[in-house]
Amino acid sequence: MQQLLLLVAFLLPAGAEAGKIIGGQEARPHSRPYMAYLLIQSPGRRSTCGGFLVREDFVMTAAHCWGSTINVILGAHNIRQQERTQQRISVLRAIRHPGYNQQRLLNDIMLLQLENRARRNQFVRPVALPQSQIRLSPGSLCTVAGWGLVSQQRRTDTLQDVQLRVQRDQECSRRFNTFNGQTQICVGNQRERKSAFLGDSGGPMVCNNVAQGIVSYGSRSGTPPGVYTRVSSFLSWINSTMRRFTQQHSPPVSMAQKATT
């Protein structure tokens, strides 16, 4: 079995080794208004991940992108510039799935409750989630987007995207002994040099305008296929978690106020 590579990127100096979306191209600016760029601070290290806005007050990402402090940038195309379209919001609460297994990378999904609600506009807008647990058919064409390094010598500051096809579960079962087809999706044709890579963790795989997958892990060489968390398998947890923590964060209402509403 090939070694696994968590697709989280550490904040490295120019010239340090890292990767990017392989075989993709620069996305049309602000064509993916749900994209989020995560700045993660943990004891002794800083790192970055992708994510995506699923409601004005929640961003979804991979559980392995957890940190003690996380800040989210929405509405960005070039993450090195202070674009007027950008909204920078602190994370109030990072909620990893209770079944997350760090060793086997199972249930690799996390919700980030934002300190303040995002302002919805043409540059910042949530993406739709699946409405049912219907599985994607092998061959389905989807798009993955993220930020990363172009090469060992040069950064890419702008959002990149790439089109990938869903593969049969067997393609990932043969490569990764941790793969679970019930909660994960196998994505990317091994005959094509196209895949997500370092720095793309937590970003969405969008199929027909619905976020069906979350970038989770792949091979160290960046050779497809890669493994994505299957969003539809977690709909009950997603909905109940957002409902529960929204209620906890709501401002108190007096009985007099309730009587007049």
Results as ranks from 00 to 15, higher is better:
139 G>I: 03
131 Q>C: 09
56 E>L: 05
102 Q>S: 14
166 V>I: 14
187 V>E: 11
237 W>H: 10
248 Q>I: 11
224 P>R: 08
151 S>W: 01
95 I>T: 03
216 S>Y: 08
136 L>G: 05
238 I>W: 10
54 V>L: 05
2 Q>D: 09
146 G>Q: 01
104 R>M: 09
8 V>T: 13
5 L>R: 09
122 Q>I: 04
222 G>I: 09
176 F>R: 07
88 R>A: 04
179 F>N: 11
161 D>T: 00
50 G>D: 07
142 C>L: 00
209 N>H: 14
111 L>I: 00
18 A>K: 10
94 A>T: 10
212 Q>W: 11
79 I>V: 14
240 S>F: 13
152 Q>W: 03
88 R>I: 04
215 V>Q: 02
161 D>Q: 09
134 I>D: 15
110 M>R: 12
130 P>Q: 09
51 G>W: 01
191 R>E: 13
164 L>R: 08
202 G>R: 09
175 R>P: 11
250 S>L: 15
63 A>V: 00
215 V>K: 00
135 R>M: 14
240 S>R: 10
197 F>P: 03
38 L>N: 12
112 L>A: 06
27 A>F: 03
37 Y>I: 03
208 N>C: 09
150 V>E: 14
34 Y>Q: 13
19 G>H: 01
58 F>D: 02
124 V>H: 02
138 P>L: 06
144 V>A: 07
36 A>R: 05
50 G>K: 02
33 P>E: 15
67 G>H: 00
206 V>T: 08
100 Y>A: 11
175 R>G: 06
208 N>A: 15
207 C>T: 09
194 K>T: 00
130 P>A: 12
248 Q>K: 07
4 L>Q: 10
174 R>G: 11
25 Q>C: 08
32 R>Q: 11
250 S>T: 07
153 Q>M: 06
38 L>D: 12
219 S>L: 12
109 I>E: 02
249 H>L: 13
119 R>E: 13
40 I>A: 14
258 K>H: 13
212 Q>S: 08
220 R>I: 07
58 F>V: 01
219 S>D: 12
206 V>A: 06
53 L>N: 13
192 E>T: 05
194 K>N: 02
72 V>T: 13
201 S>R: 07
75 G>A: 03
157 D>R: 04
124 V>W: 01
86 Q>W: 00
72 V>M: 01
44 G>H: 14
102 Q>M: 11
249 H>G: 08
152 Q>S: 11
61 T>S: 13
27 A>D: 01
60 M>E: 01
163 Q>M: 08
3 Q>E: 10
215 V>Y: 03
49 C>I: 07
